[in-house]
Amino acid sequence: MRSTTNTIWAVFGLALILVLPAFAGGQWIKIFTSTTTFAMAAAGAGFLYTRLGMVSLVQVGLMGVGGWVTLRLNHAFNFPFEINLMVAGAVTMFLGNLIALPALRMRGLYLALITLMFAAGLDIVFTAKQFPNGAAGFWGVGTTFAADMRRPLLAQSDAAYLRYTMVWLVIGFVLIELHRRMAPGRAWALIRKSEAAALASGVNVTLYKTWAFGLSGLLAGLGGGLLAGSLGLLDSATFRASESVMLFALVIVGGARFWYGAVIAAVLFRVVPGLLNNWGVDADLSLVIFGAALLHAVMTAPDGLAGQINGAVRALIPGGKTAETKSDKKGAKA
């Protein structure tokens, strides 16, 4: 059963990767690209939340770090784009590990607040220092500068770059799924049940919590690096701490238990404000819509929109069973 739904989604995803870049025009290509990069960060936050029951409110801030590192390397050296991206991912993975240190002692709301403090700290640094644009010096910011951002050889055009980003997102999803199916996934499930359960099974809780935050940080950093490659210039306003909070709320609305929940979250995050703009409505209205959606999710749809879609898809497939996807709230809180 599960494999049928997975196949349907795989075909759908592939079709999207082929079709979307070919037909989306002008400004929409950029919006879809940035949506894809935010989906990577959302996937990281979602997996931390469902697998370990931990709330990270610093994902967008880490995207900023990934973007900063990518721009910095691009303007300082002549490495190919991939190398810069990898370094950016490694840096945010390490930062994720650092953020995990308080996570070893704290949980629930306190942990969320610690990650939010990290996000606020990054916010301040980004606002003060801005993002490298090719000028001299370590911070590399000049008022009249706008040096070239190199892109991957295979993805020079905007459409090709969107496709390239989507492939990275798929790699991100595969990485999460592989973890879920192997030793780390089992260790995380036990940690979520209780630390005593994990310890009694021989799980090194410190190692696996650090690992989880590292993976989540890696995804955010890659997303940020890819965003930098798309835009060439980054603005500190994109990486406000409030954006991290917003993205997390939308991960809940989208549905953290399913991979496409992250896509839904990113679409809401990036596309809805764009649509409102197009229709001549104040984009701040999206805040009201998201607030209502979050209430809806918290009160009636614990698995978010993805959970409802999943239920509908299963109902359409003969022999499909919806009960299996029932959320496990007790486990998430333990």
Binding site: A183, R186, A187, A189, L190, R192, K193, A197, S201, G202, V203, N204, D328, K330, G331
Partner: peptide, 16 residues
């Protein structure tokens, strides 16, 4: 662990 099968609950020990 509720979201693991019995087999996975056992593998969680042999993993280490």
């Amino acid at each position: 662990a509720n979201d693991l099968t019995v087999r996975e609950n056992l593998m969680a020990i042999t993993d280490h």
